[in-house]
Design a protein around this nucleic acid. Sequence first.
DNA 1: TATTGTTATACTCTATAACTATA
DNA 2: TATAGTTATAGAGTATAACAATA
Lengths: 151, 151
Amino acid sequence: MAIPSGPASAWTDAERVMFDFVDAYDRAYETAAGQLGLSKAQACVLGRLTSRTAMGDLTAELGCDASNVTQIVTRLEAKGLVQREQHPHDRRSRQIVRTPKGSQVYTRFERSFEFPRAAIAHLTSREQKHLSTLLHKAIGGGITGPGAFDA
Amino acid sequence: MAIPSGPASAWTDAERVMFDFVDAYDRAYETAAGQLGLSKAQACVLGRLTSRTAMGDLTAELGCDASNVTQIVTRLEAKGLVQREQHPHDRRSRQIVRTPKGSQVYTRFERSFEFPRAAIAHLTSREQKHLSTLLHKAIGGGITGPGAFDA
DNA sequence: TATTGTTATACTCTATAACTATA
DNA sequence: TATAGTTATAGAGTATAACAATA
């Protein structure tokens, strides 16, 4: 379930807007995936496979249990969107690749997932830069790039 | 699964930072809920019950299927965190209320979910206002309040 | 007949524990 | 013995369809 919009006790305006933003983002992501018959997790995994990736690396990147990734990959494979291949040297290891169909589907997903582009389109280029800086700082990343606070 | 961090094809910096922000928010939410033995959805529902709420209203607010809400409420009830009550006039309808224990648990959840407060704490008060304005505009809400673009 | 909520069912995500094959 | 990945299993979220009770 996406985190729902709505009031939550004693939040400040800033906290509330963050909540709404995250909610809108999550819902848009799920909707875009669903239109292609994908779950959020499946779209996610598909999106990471820009190149041949070992199961272990995929697991580490996703930050969840290996058995979980096994199943998601199995479902994607059943849909013909990815393939498991042998690692050239270590026969224990598997490498996952997108099939052409998988790449095509993911491209469609990206086109369909308009939220980030739309969000940016609502802002001037100066505002875009400023938003990036502020979000980065909010996450705890400090100052991003040159001219960070020139607005 | 939380949307994972990581590169996704051809995103701009701004798109990427949005992604990271949403990811961090979602993970923090899930972690805070998990520490209290709650799923994201359960914490969510519990948080909405600041007052007696009909199932139908809850369902509308969450934007998901009614059967789904039924089950989440059933699990919360089994944990003693909410109660189902009769509607005074319409005997078809049920109203959900938090128990004292439910309120206590949700208070603990809010204390535990530090992400929004921490994010804000990384910013000056002027930056906080600016971030609110930009996020609101990015969602499509237009100008929020007075002094929106004075930075 | 229409509405409120539940039940039955099926699929997916998720984790833990036990397992196989390989190193 | 340690590592890569899978299988078995269980709990939870989600939706669809069918249903009961009430309006």
